[in-house]
Structures are given as C-alpha cells and as structure tokens.
Write a protein that binds this DNA or RNA. Sequence first.
DNA 1: GTCTATAGGAAGATAGAC
DNA 2: GTCTATCTTCCTATAGAC
Lengths: 226, 226
Amino acid sequence: MTQEEKQTEQIIMDAARKVFQQSGLGGARMQQIADEAGINKALLHYYFRNKKKLFEAVFKEDFNRYMIPLSGILLRETGLTVEERIVTFVQSFIRTLNQHPHLPLFVMHEIASNPNRMLGLVKGGDVFSQVGETGKPEDSESKVFVWQIQEGIDEGRYHSVNPEQFVISIIGMCVYPFVARPIIKFWLKKEDDQFKDFMEDRQREVIDYAFRILIKDYQPYADNHR
Amino acid sequence: MTQEEKQTEQIIMDAARKVFQQSGLGGARMQQIADEAGINKALLHYYFRNKKKLFEAVFKEDFNRYMIPLSGILLRETGLTVEERIVTFVQSFIRTLNQHPHLPLFVMHEIASNPNRMLGLVKGGDVFSQVGETGKPEDSESKVFVWQIQEGIDEGRYHSVNPEQFVISIIGMCVYPFVARPIIKFWLKKEDDQFKDFMEDRQREVIDYAFRILIKDYQPYADNHR
DNA sequence: GTCTATAGGAAGATAGAC
DNA sequence: GTCTATCTTCCTATAGAC
C-alpha cells in the first residue's frame, strides 16, 4: 500500500466516521461522505467496495483504537491496584471522549442494531474474549478487576458492593454524559466549550464518588479544604 | 376520532416504535413497519401522511409518556425530600426501562442526530421548560433538586458534591446499563431474563451508592447483615 | 378505511474515459 | 487513482378501485 493510498483511505474514513456518527449506518448517504471527503462517490467504492464494508472499517477502527484500550485499563490484567485502575480509567476515559464526544453513542447504537455482527467484528483484539487459564477457570481475563474488588471486600477494606454492579456504575458515570450530551447541554444551558470544562471537572468528581462508594474509611482531600 | 381509528393508529404506532427503535429513522423501512403491523404500506400514509411525521408521533409519545414523568420525579417541584426523590426515581426508572429496554438508546440517538428538532418536539410538556417565577429567577423549575442538594450541603448533612454532577451520576448509573445492554449481556454472559434480574437487583445497589456518595453518616442496612 | 398497482425519485453500485 | 455518466435497485408516496 503506497503512501498516497493510505492518505486517501484515511481521508475517506475520517469523512465516513463523521457522517456515520451523525446518521448511523442506515441513515448515512454515500454522497454525503464523498462530499465531506471532497472526492467522488465512485472513489468510495474503489477503496471500500460498498457501504457496509466502509462502515465496518470505521467501526472496527474506532472500537479497537479507543474502546478496547480504555476498557483494558479497567478490566485487563495489568498489575494495577483497584484504586489505580479507577483513577487512570476515569481520567483516560473522560479525556478521550472529550476529544471524540460522539463515539459512545455511535458504538452503542450500532452494536444494539446488530449485536452479533458488531461484536463479532471486534473479536480477537477483544477485551471480553476468553483467554488462557488464570487459575480461575470458567471465567475470562476480563474479570480480574471483579476479583480484585471481591478480595478487598473479603479483607474488610471495601464496602460490600456487588463488584459487577460497581464496575458498570463507574463506566456509566463516565459514559452517560456523552451519550446524553445534547440533553445535558440543553438542561444546563452549556455550549460545547462549557460542556468540555464540565467534563474536565467531572473526572475528580467521579473518582471521588467511586472511592466513597467503595472504600471504607475514605476521606477525600476536598472535604477538609472546601 | 372513532374507536376503530384509534385502534389502527395505535397498532401502527406500536409497529413503528419497534422498527424505529431497531433501525432508527433513516434505517427504518415503511414496508417493514407495515408488515409488523399486519397492514398495508398505503395505510401508513393514510394515517400519518409520511415517514417523518410517523416517526415524530412515536418519538413524542415515548418521550412524553416515559422520559418526562421519570425526569419529573427527580427534577420537578413535588414536595419530596432528596432521599425520597432518589429512591423513587431509581426504582421507577429501572422498572420502567426493564419494560422498555430499547427506549433510552432510541431517544438519545435521535436527539443526537437532530437536537433542535427533537428537543423542539417535546417542548411544552417539557421538564426543562422555563416556568413561572419560583423566587429564584434566571433559573428553571428543573433545578429544584439541585437547590435541595445545595441546601443539605450548606447545612452540613451532605458531602460537598457538585449537585449537577451528582444528578447526572444517578441518572447515568440507571441509564447506562440499558444503553450498553448488548455489551453487558455479552460480558456477563447473561440472557434477557438474567439481565432483567440483574437490573432488579441494581435498584438497591444504585440507591445505596447514591446515598453513600451524598449522605455524611450513611449506614446502609445491609452493612450489618451481609 | 383498506387494498393493489404504480409513479417518481433517491441512493448504491458499476462502466469506462482520462 | 480519479473522474463523469449511467444502470439498477429499492423505497417513499400517491392514484384509484373496492
């Protein structure tokens, strides 16, 4: 693949990403993508054969480049403690999504409209995939975090949360504002810039919430200084 | 409007809802809706003139019947305390969405793809709408909950959270699992029934989290009994 | 009110020149 | 590799019979 090919291919994918994120697979128009890329409709087919293949290329790239690494912070075997995972995850997650605010809704919507095909697409580089034995058979690597939390509960350091519910809550607190972005912008009367600032502040806040939910003697720094 | 008209109209809307929720406005096909309703394509146009109008009817009904009342529990002036609001909201919300799991993603996605038109559609019965003076001018009724929380913080009963961030967190913890339903089902290896049970359990858990984030001397019942 | 048949147009995909 | 022109398919929407 020459340098020029890669460049055009990338221009097309960026244009396609924009249109697909706005309109979804069904609603997107090849003409609109071509216009956005400043090229011709026929060229889209030259590079990607058809609309579905173009979509899958975009989706796969998004999922693998962003969703997988981010989930990995929380779920994969990394040697991090529970607390480190939470801090790193929340910060990386919100910062990344602040750069790509349309990503979550796009990914969620397309997975929902065809779970098997979409989840099938990303198998292989998948955080969820069943990998080798970890001494805890019948379960996947993606449960390490869950076990770590359970351990802390058993040792009496943590409140007795349901680890799976807790994980979903952290992710939810981070993702939801982006999914509901237009509503929140409307409710809080914020423009794009202000929303971004609001989400920057949110990092501290969510970490604080997560720790307060989980850790038994948690005393946030802010409590004595606000 | 006769009884029969209303019935047919409702059949069409139910069919349309199903198809729109699965495919979005752009991806939905009038033929598919007609099939789903067990009637003819032409009849759709007889009742709703065109696709866009049919879509708007469905969207508006969903939003007004479910989203507005639910948000109202949390946000509107009702005489409830903060604690009562949280308990009622989380329970109603999760129970309702357990009946209509596709609702949030549908609503969010369509608002995102055209915020002005969609948010315009629901103005009037809107939780966000600016209504009469409440003694706190320049702000809307939908901020009552925020003020209540601020009051509790000032009185030293609550931790010093950012009230807006806190509200969004509660909603996020409730909504996110439904938005990410296929992924979560996949990750936790749950079927529809098990997911439903998981969400039933989640009610207690989220209320617990919310209280632990907010209330200074919160001692959950479960802590002494698990 | 409900159907069949079809007009009319939009959008994906291809052929072929350059 | 990139374009213009065109084919073909599919879908919305309407006309008109019953």
